[in-house]
Write a protein that binds this DNA or RNA. Structure first.
Ligand code: MN
Ligand code: MN
Ligand code: ZN
Ligand code: ZN
Lengths: 138, 138
DNA sequence: AATAAGAATGAGAACTCTTCTCATTTTCGT
DNA sequence: ACGAAAATGAGAAGAGTTCTCATTCTTATT
């Protein structure tokens, strides 16, 4: 276990934080709810409290290690920060999540904010639809 | 009170539904949570249950009379359907909401969905920032 | 390596938003 | 006006998340 990332983020290297970070880094699934992380850790025999998972993910977000999304469905979804901003397209049938970047959209958003007199701080764009697999099998 | 809109939507013209619809149509604020609607009706002396407000707004949404948004902050926000799709830019300081339409963004989204193999059903785009007033006074 | 001060954890309570349950009331076609 | 079917409202319940606080862990210092 590598505690340097946590140290760098100004967080003490506690076991729960290390476990959660390691899990996020090694999981094949990129986008996960707090509950997902909690259950996965339990199943792999780790002892962590759900409250701690929520707390740690929120701290990771504040430290810029993780990004939080508000997909439809009520739960917050987290993913490891990758340095590069991107948006999401989600399957309403199977929950699949794909990522994309579109510079034209990014530029247009800035333009709209300026026109409306806003100092833009952030934006969120979700496209919903039925993925290729679900179109075939559905 | 005009019950024709409700009838047209296939809903019985009950008092709560009429009151809620009338309120949505006459309110100066376009974007409101269920709680907002509930409180406003109480203050104007109407007797409605909160459960009914939630139920009715959900029915209005299903009937296409109303659109539901998921702004940050946890609550669903509703607005009367205007026929024309639009997106939103919100002030993170004062909660102000402005609307916009950008055909370029709309087109790009369709293109992205197609490229990714999705049959697009919907999308949501929120731009966050600090509005003009809040930049001056904040 | 032992110590001690402060920080973090975990169990469960609590909170917010929303939906459900079900007894009572209302609507509307006859 | 009558009665079947639908809608309402109060409160319970549910989902997701945060809070509380006694206990445990981390880390800087001896
Ligand atoms: Mn992503
Ligand atoms: Mn709007
Ligand atoms: Zn799918
Ligand atoms: Zn503002």
């Amino acid at each position: 276990m590598d505690s340097s990332e946590l140290k760098r983020a100004g967080l003490k290297a506690t076991l729960p934080r290390l476990k959660i970070l390691e899990f996020l880094e090694t999981s094949k699934v990129r986008h996960m709810s707090a509950e997902d992380v909690y259950k996965a850790l339990l199943e792999s025999g780790e002892e962590v409290g759900l409250a701690t998972v929520y707390r740690v993910l929120t701290q990771f977000e504040a430290a810029g290690l993780v990004v939080r999304h508000h997909f439809e469905g009520g739960q917050s979804v987290f993913e490891l920060e990758q340095g590069k901003h991107h948006d999401h397209i989600l399957c309403v049938r199977c929950g699949r999540v794909d990522e994309f970047v579109d510079e034209t959209i990014e530029e247009r958003q800035k333009k709209i904010a300026k026109e409306k007199g806003y100092a833009m701080t952030d934006h969120s764009l979700y496209i919903y639809g039925v993925c290729g697999d679900c179109q075939k099998n559905g």
